[in-house]
């Protein structure tokens, strides 16, 4: 087991575990559907000379859904792409402070940008914008992105910080005990 999986096991119980499962299931299903729709579209085109009308629009919505369902989980688990060149020189305590600080900064940024995204969604709704083929309401899709930004900010300052604390505690334990495994 990698140390990240180890920390996940120790920091995700009860609500957090179910939340991760739910979000992952939705994101995963959206991904699977993207794959299926793409194939149906291609097969329809080649075998039946009938592409799937509006398939592209559906895939676009699913892509957004997948990304914004995954965003909270990768944020609290700290699965973002990072440069970890200096990690060997960072003490567990400094690492804890850093994680908390970055989580706060990211949460504030997400609250601000989420507000703007929400506003742009409301603007599109007020003008009655829809997608070309399926007439899906553009404003609602955009506003949903904004809501997920806020939700991510919330889990960053709760689950994210809790996870950092668990990691800190485990690293202190492992300093006294011979091994994590």
């Amino acid at each position: 087991m990698t140390s990240a999986e180890h920390i996940t096991q120790h920091s995700e119980r009860g609500l957090a575990k179910w939340l991760a499962l739910t979000l992952n299931l939705i994101a995963g299903s959206a991904l699977m559907l993207m794959m299926v729709i793409t194939c149906v579209d291609v097969i329809g085109r080649y075998l039946f000379n009938k592409p799937l009308v509006g398939g592209v629009e559906l895939i676009e919505v699913l892509l957004g859904l997948m990304i914004f369902m995954a965003l909270p989980v990768i944020s609290w688990r700290n699965e973002h792409v990072v440069v970890d060149i200096l990690d060997p020189f960072v003490s567990p305590r400094l690492n804890l402070i850093r994680t908390i600080l970055f989580n706060l900064v990211t949460a504030i940024a997400l609250v601000m940008i989420g507000q703007r995204i929400w506003d742009l969604g409301a603007r599109a709704s007020s003008h009655g914008e829809v997608t070309e083929y399926l007439h899906l309401p553009v404003g609602m899709i955009v506003s949903f992105f904004g809501v997920m930004c806020w939700f991510t900010a919330l889990v960053l300052i709760t689950l994210g910080i809790y996870r950092a604390l668990v990691q800190y505690r485990l690293s202190l334990d492992s300093a006294t005990k011979p091994s994590l495994e």
């Binding site: 700290n78 973002h80 792409v81 990072v82 440069v83 970890d84 060149i85 200096l86 990690d87 960072v90 850093r98 970055f102 900064v105 990211t106 940024a109």
Partner: peptide, 9 residues
């Protein structure tokens, strides 16, 4: 990024 802030952020 050197102090490990996520690159995208």
């Amino acid at each position: 990024i050197m102090i490990r802030m996520p690159i995208g952020i």
